[in-house]
Simulated scan of single mutants.
Amino acid sequence: MSDVVAKFREATEAADIDALMTTLAPDAELTSPVSGRLIFRGHDDLRILLTAAYGSLSHLRWTEHIGDGTRRVLLAEATIGGFRMTEAMILELAADGRIRRLNPYLRPWLPLSLLAVKLGPRLLRHPGVMRRAARG
């Protein structure tokens, strides 16, 4: 199971969305760290979201990997628009070992807000993705 977490780390650091998608279960979901209410589900919607998100960050580096069961915690540092950001990502693994649920927690407020500003226009080009995520 830890191989998928290592692949996830490598893929996100390289912003390699194709490799990232292979780590996700078909029914994977991500809860928005910006709204806490939007839930993005499935490969099609997650590909759009993750392309926009990881394409907005620079110098992403995972610094810690905590846990060895079906729930893992990754800690990271990145920059966006010259501001330093930290992330805690809780991953829940499915029975097949792929990632079933992603719960990112980002701080501080200013870089998180900048990320939201960058993601907004990219996601609004796909109104169906936003509608589906808003269903929670």
Rank of each mutant, 00 (worst) to 15 (best):
I90R: 12
F8L: 11
V34E: 01
P108F: 05
T63W: 02
A134K: 05
N103Y: 03
F40T: 09
G128H: 00
L123V: 09
A76C: 11
K118T: 10
G136M: 00
R37A: 13
S58V: 00
H59S: 15
G128Y: 00
L46V: 07
E29R: 14
P26T: 05
F83Y: 11
P26G: 04
M21E: 03
E92L: 11
D44C: 01
A52L: 06
M85K: 07
M130A: 15
D45H: 12
H126Q: 02
G69M: 03
A76I: 08
L93A: 14
D96S: 12
E29P: 00
N103H: 13
V117W: 12
H126C: 03
H126A: 03
L46E: 04
L110V: 14
T23R: 03
L110W: 08
R132T: 02
L24K: 05
A88S: 14
S58R: 13
G36K: 03
A14R: 14
D45S: 13
L91Q: 07
T70R: 15
L114N: 00
S32A: 08
D96I: 06
R107F: 10
L123P: 08
R71F: 01
L91V: 07
D18L: 01
A19R: 10
A94H: 11
L49A: 08
A6N: 12
D45I: 02
G97P: 10
R71C: 10
R125W: 00
V4L: 08
D3E: 15
H126M: 03
R135H: 05
L60I: 12
R131W: 10
D68K: 11
L115R: 04
L110F: 13
P127F: 02
G67L: 03
L57D: 06
G69I: 08
G97H: 10
R100V: 02
L75N: 08
L124H: 01
W109F: 15
M1H: 12
D18H: 04
K118S: 11
S32L: 07
R101A: 14
G69S: 07
G97S: 07
H59L: 07
E13C: 08
A25R: 04
G36C: 04
D18N: 11
L20C: 08
L50P: 01
R101P: 04
S32M: 06
V117Y: 09
L119K: 09
V5T: 09
L20M: 11
A53K: 09
P121A: 08
D3R: 13
A52F: 01
L102V: 14
P104S: 08
D16I: 04
P33V: 07
E29H: 11
G136A: 12
A95W: 00
R47F: 02
R101C: 11
G55L: 10
R107M: 13
S35K: 04
L106W: 05
H65P: 02
A52K: 04
G42K: 05
A28I: 01
P108L: 05
L115C: 06
G81K: 04
D45N: 15
L119M: 14
V129C: 07
A134M: 13
A28D: 03
A14Q: 12
R125P: 00
A95V: 13
I80Q: 04
L106Y: 11
A95G: 09
G128Q: 00
E87W: 06
L106G: 05
E10C: 01
I48W: 02
K118F: 08
D96F: 08
L24G: 09
K7Y: 00
A11D: 04
M89C: 09
R37F: 12
A19P: 05
D45A: 15
V5R: 06
